[in-house]
Nucleic acid binder design. Structure first.
Lengths: 336, 336
DNA sequence: CTGAAAGCGCTTACAG
DNA sequence: CTGAAAGCGCTTACAG
């Protein structure tokens, strides 16, 4: 029914081996052979069957993307972060031949145990993962011997993993410095609880602490009820005002936007009498008014770099187990 | 090297046919056979090779997702809309066995011509697509004879396609009605140019027109420079104020948020002296302050419904070529 | 540079 | 309910 390598071989007057070689750029063949094969393939409308190819090569040209296991649903809706990563991933993939595609799975806790089987069943060539995961799970994935690139993961080192992070500590430092330079002295830090389970958030927190220590000022860490960051930010406003805090570094933009919303509602002149700095430079940070001062990390680039790193490892043009830390910068806007 | 159906058959003391039957719930076999096979498979750590299965069945258990061709990059970053759809798609897919996965491709104009080959090469079982596409392209996809579910597409009918839309016309009507009820009389409509190429935006526009006609008021349609909707919204503010418009229905939330930002910057008291209604009920619509009155469409549900529709067609539990129109509703908040 | 042969891991009639 | 056989479309040594 469908056109196979045999049909193309017959049409081009060569063997199927030659057709295969031409399509895979293997071995050597004359230029005329190459043209004849490609022409025959075009005439017949031949499209290589990737399942057959995969069966024999044991490679799928499929990259798996894993989003964090602590999110049970609506991963993409909750925060724009993952979407930007995803855009970066696709952007990098566009440069590849159309053979290279991505499979992407949102492993809820329940599905996490199936990821290993999924990798095996689909012969996934490599994995991209964002965030923190259960160490036992990572151990299991590492044992598959396929390359893995982890974004924003601060956990223990695994031989088959490569790591890409932002300079979160420095980001926290820059945020606090900005508030200090603007003359604020009672500077709080806002985080979504629990802070201690997120190494990434702790890094940002450490940067804040370093700046406060240098300035000889008291650290004031506020953890809001775990939940969607926007809502948490809204809820934290009263406690901050009560405690006479006059500036806040929020560990993520959505938290800052929630806080901003509630402060405005209460008539606080944010930017003048109250300083606010976020983290991430999400588009919402410059779409609200007043616009949010924040720490920029290039999320899109993170997705691009993670993907090209993985692709290069798969092509054996790069080593596994590297670590890359991307710079961050302060974006000064209206709120501080 | 890897564990195959033969190994399981040997371990369980049955034929490979039986193993295959058990794994696919085919034919009949005794309960003890079933248990023996499953036990043997578990002991050996057997995982079916999907490529081999695909080769013989000519099905991949892969669903393709197509995002609109008019976006050349950053599809997901530009608007949260697609992310929410994606979340809905995954949510629906979670209920399936782990065999069912999704491949998803962002076809830029250049890559659009390769989608057909991609479907063939990967033996994609069915396709989900969002938005408008080139008719020739749709014709080509329709010819593949695989089921396709289209979200937000108002084009010509194809036999293998099913359609899911929101009641956009009614949404436009409800938006304009709200502004009329709030006492506004000089009510404009804001769209990103070009409006005439988007049947969906035209529907929303028609609803607005109907309401204005009923009220005996003049229609004022403003098309802002094509570009990111937020920026377009910002740019449109001066022209609106100059033309004495005192209320606006924006065809999409991001456009309304941009306009809101610029109006606040200019000191306009939005919600009192100026009415504003958006469309989509994106999360940003309630995260800005004042919060945006808007038309809710259940984007998440759209993704869920599209996916279950496709899955049901694939399982032959539903017909192709149906049309579903989902209701919309007004969400009254601070801006109107 | 080319061709004949084997085999990847699975499912599907078919005969028992 | 079970087993032996054929075959899906491809790649990979191997011999020429």
């Amino acid at each position: 029914m469908s056109i196979t390598v045999v049909d193309v071989a017959r049409e081009a007057g060569v063997s199927r081996t030659t057709v295969s070689n031409v399509f895979n750029g293997k071995a050597k063949y004359s230029e005329e052979t190459r043209v004849a094969v490609l022409e025959a393939a075009r005439r017949l409308g031949y499209k290589p069957n990737l399942a057959a190819k995969s069966l024999i090569t044991n490679r799928s040209n499929l990259i798996g993307l894993l989003l964090p296991s602590y999110v049970d649903r609506n991963t993409l809706t909750t925060s724009p972060f993952y979407n930007i990563i995803l855009d970066g991933v696709y952007s990098a993939l566009q440069n590849e031949t159309y053979y290279d595609l991505i499979i992407y799975s949102v492993p809820t806790r329940a599905r996490l145990s199936q990821v290993g089987d999924w990798i095996d069943s689909r012969s996934v060539d490599g994995v991209l993962a964002v965030g923190e995961f259960n160490p036992r799970f990572l151990q299991e994935i590492n044992a598959k011997e396929i390359p893995v690139v982890l974004i924003d993961n601060y956990q223990k080192n695994f031989a088959n993993f490569s790591y890409i992070n932002s300079d979160d500590e420095n980001g926290g430092y820059l945020a606090a410095r900005r508030l200090l330079e603007r003359g604020f002295r009672s500077i709080g830090l806002c985080a979504v609880s629990p802070l201690h389970t997120s190494p990434l958030m702790q890094k940002r927190c450490e940067g804040y602490r370093r700046a406060m220590r240098e300035a000889g000022l008291e650290e004031k860490v506020f953890e809001g009820e775990g939940g969607p960051p926007f809502e948490t930010g809204c809820q934290m406003a009263p406690a901050l005002l009560e405690r006479q805090v006059d500036a806040v570094f929020c560990l993520e933009d959505m938290l800052a936007v929630g806080l901003l919303n509630e402060l405005l509602r209460r008539g606080v002149r944010v930017g003048q009498e109250f300083g606010l700095v976020g983290f991430d430079n999400l588009s919402i940070s410059w779409q609200v008014y007043p616009e949010l001062t924040t720490i920029n990390q290039n999320i899109f680039d993170k997705g691009v770099i993670a993907t090209t790193t993985l692709l290069n490892i798969l092509k054996e043009k790069a080593m596994r187990n590297t670590r890359l830390i991307l710079p961050v910068e302060l974006i000064a806007r209206g709120t501080a």
